[in-house]
Design a protein around this nucleic acid. Structure first.
Lengths: 337, 337
DNA sequence: CTAAACTTTTGGAGCGTTCCATTGGAGCGT
DNA sequence: ACGCTCCAATGGAACGCTCCAAAAGTTTAG
């Protein structure tokens, strides 16, 4: 940092070079940990870096090296933490390879043009992980690998798909509830393809079992409010039910509160199962039985897949990887009384 | 995107220029919405952009223009959503000014050098918002404006401080509980300066009131598990209590579940108040009475402050802004029986 | 019809790095 | 003392943009 007219200006590689009495190239070598630098000069450079509080410009580095070692991840919104295990899984793999992960939600400046993917591509990420329903994202002619996590279908041509087996998920939920003696099991659904898959499975399985089908909230958002409103509808319908299968954990949380409002307790009066094993489900106060969508594993696999694309032969065929979900039994389900 | 040897390469401004039959400078003008471009050429350029799926390189733009129009925000971890209102407040202001916000947690690649602030500065953000206890962040000689939000003290020399009045917060919590008839009010605290301030206020006020002081969890992390463990301690102590003031909402959530384990209900047996009005407190299933730390307002003020730094005279004196918190009464508190 | 005054478009330098080809020494054997 | 090899260090081009000064084109007025 040099002082010019009382204003701090960021130090550049040239400032460091001058301070250390070497060339900019030598500084660059030290920066990148090249072993062919003499200890004396290395030390001098490091001292200069510290003294000037020099931090290399990523923009310049990226531009010059044509590598950013950065992977972009798009999520719907930060508040819906369903992505958190996926992120952990991604980082587990990418940390080892010195890749950075750039997380961004769908929020975009209304004045500006592009969407989240545009922003990421503009920043030269080397690949994108999409943990959103990718329908309205501009992925046209994307020139970097894209991995869609969670959704079974994708508009991203050539993208790999990694998702958890929703049919199986619905199956183990319903098996669990049926084993507990429940016959009147309602389903809380929501907008979007993922909720749709879970709903389809519910309908099929209930039909096979010859049990009544009750689906609510199909046109709601898949969040707490949606779950709350759907449950209100369910209650208003007057149909008998002793268990609820919610398409995700946030919907389940909404359901619990709607039930509480009419004096129904969980699992005393109604058993509830969610889906995703989001942090909210783990909460000490909630203890929600849920389907673990194996987010961690989804993240790991996504990372491995990306690495294959980046390092391996460029022209891999798009792959689909299906992960088996598993049931996490907590406190929100109980035997039918 | 041009095809070379079967590999997609990103289009550059030159590719667009060639396709549109103009110079790169003209493309640049169109990109930046310059009004001095003839409609014909503008259209031609836009068509070429679309056709080539061109997305300008932020790295090159940033480097050339010496502006990034980007503000960095550091949070502790994504799962602790206490930051979410602050982010909304920031975006409210910055969207209008076409600034982008880059969010990052404290996670850093263990192999790599710098911390979150280093990473942000390397990306040439124009200012940083720190919503963490900044103690172990390298803010030495930072040459861009830094705003510390939430914490009352900071090691960032020259940083503005924007925080909510913790003393007042503790005061309104305790007033509320006392008015409900509670006398034995325990406090669940945690590590860090913010929890420390709330604790100090609790101790002072209880002393003034001549009521028993019970502080637990001082050495715990300020999250759910910390709250859970602290509550276990409190229960094990055998001391009588009918209300709990938790230093934040996550601690409160942990407390609720610890109480549930020993058959105590909220607010039937124990009233609980949290702090921060994090999303978890709003949850339909939890309905936690809490202190709203006015995160939205903190975010707005932080943004305004940054804009003043960026646009105004460079040598502003560091400022401290204190926001008044307010109590949000939900369902976790009730009259003492 | 020409000069002046705009308006639109353009080439070139520069942003802070990386990377490559090259230089300049040191060390060695003869 | 000489040429060789080997290693450390360097200068310059390049990355994809922006921004400025200048060129080219268009309009207006006399």
């Amino acid at each position: 940092m040099t002082q010019i007219d009382g204003v701090n200006k960021k130090a550049t590689i040239y400032d460091v070079a001058e301070a250390a009495g070497v060339s900019k190239s030598l500084v660059s070598l030290v920066l990148r940990g090249d072993s062919a630098v003499s200890p004396t000069k290395r030390e001098a450079v490091q001292k200069a870096i510290k003294k000037l509080n020099y931090r290399p410009s990523r923009n310049a580095q990226n531009l010059a090296s044509n590598r950013t070692k950065t992977i972009g991840m798009v999520i719907t919104e930060y508040e819906n933490l369903a992505y958190s295990n996926v992120l952990i899984g991604l980082r587990e793999v990418f940390d080892k390879q010195d890749y950075q992960i750039l997380l961004t939600d769908l929020h975009t400046n209304p004045n500006l043009h592009g969407d989240a993917v545009d922003a990421l591509v503009s920043m030269d990420v080397e690949a994108v992980v999409l943990f959103v329903e990718p329908a309205n994202l501009n992925t046209e002619g994307l020139s970097i690998p894209a991995i869609v996590v969670g959704a079974r279908e994708s508009t991203v041509k050539g993208a790999d798909l990694i998702y958890s087996n929703d049919y199986l998920g619905s199956q183990i939920v319903l098996e669990h509830l049926i084993k507990l003696g429940h016959k009147n099991i309602a389903h809380l659904s929501g907008l979007g393809g993922i909720a749709g898959n879970r709903r389809k499975a519910y309908v099929e399985i209930m039909q096979e079992q010859g049990m009544p089908r009750m689906v609510y909230g199909e046109s709601q958002k898949t969040n707490q409010l949606g779950g709350y409103l759907a449950t209100k509808e369910l209650i208003a319908s007057g149909k008998p039910f002793t268990a609820i299968y919610a398409a995700n954990d946030y919907i389940a949380a909404g359901a619990i509160s709607a039930l509480a409002e009419v004096g129904k307790s969980v699992p005393g009066d109604v058993s509830i199962v969610g889906y995703d094993n989001a942090p909210i489900a783990r909460e000490y106060a909630m203890k929600l039985t849920t389907v673990d969508d194996m987010g961690l594993e989804l993240g790991r696999q996504a990372a491995e897949q990306i690495l294959k694309h980046l390092e391996g032969n460029k022209s891999q065929k798009p792959k689909q990887i299906v992960i088996e979900p598993s049931l996490v039994i907590r406190k929100s389900t109980a035997k039918k009384k």
